[in-house]
């Protein structure tokens, strides 16, 4: 066991955990923050997306111990216009991917604002966050219900 101090949603949490515990399991099983979901547990679906120092990451592929000192933000710590926009645009059906979608979108909007290019940037889209840009930048978040149209509309509305 190792003592790990995680900083989550603005609060410090000392934890006694083994080094192989993922950030995802630390959040869900040790801190009771079950808003972050476990989908594939192998970095292929994005359901576990959280923000680490403002950047979106897959918490299933992160060892909790490696993120000591980082400012972790989960869906429980997010208060953002995207949340109401997802409701307005039916950006989900079952809701299992939604926490990850919203954390990812928050990170994505910040990346875009800082000038991060994407694989479709430069193909006529300019600096505007087009539907094609949103789909490409959000491709790390799968939705098995197929609510993609609503998700893209919700993000586009907030992005302006």
């Amino acid at each position: 066991m190792a003592e790990v101090r995680l900083r989550v949603n603005g609060a410090d949490h000392p934890l006694d955990i083994q080094p192989q515990v993922s950030l995802l399991d630390a959040l869900r099983e040790h801190l009771g923050l079950t808003g972050t979901k476990k989908g594939c547990d192998q970095g292929a679906c994005g359901a576990c997306t959280v923000l680490a120092d403002g950047e979106r990451i897959n918490s299933c592929l992160a060892l909790a111990v490696q993120y000591e000192g980082a400012e972790i933000t989960t869906i429980e710590g997010i208060d953002h216009p995207l949340q109401a926009a997802f409701v307005r645009h039916d950006g989900f059906q079952c809701g299992y991917c939604t926490s990850g979608q919203i954390c990812s979108a928050v990170g994505m909007l910040a990346e875009h604002k800082e000038g991060m290019p994407s694989a479709v940037t430069g193909q006529g889209s300019g600096s505007h966050l087009s539907g094609a840009e949103i789909r490409e930048r959000m491709s790390g978040n799968l939705c098995r219900c197929g609510a993609y149209n609503g998700i893209v509309e919700a993000i586009q509305e907030v992005a302006g």
């Binding site: 970095g43 994005g46 997306t49 950047e55 979106r56 990451i57 897959n58 592929l61 992160a62 990812s104 990170g107 994505m108 990346e111 290019p117 994407s118 694989a119 940037t121 930048r137 959000m138 491709s139 790390g140 978040n141």
Partner: peptide, 16 residues
């Protein structure tokens, strides 16, 4: 190089 990186994985994975 930039295009190859952006063509791979997802934004979450590229951040890590």
């Amino acid at each position: 190089v930039s295009q190859a990186v952006l063509g791979g994985a997802s934004a979450q994975l590229r951040n890590m």
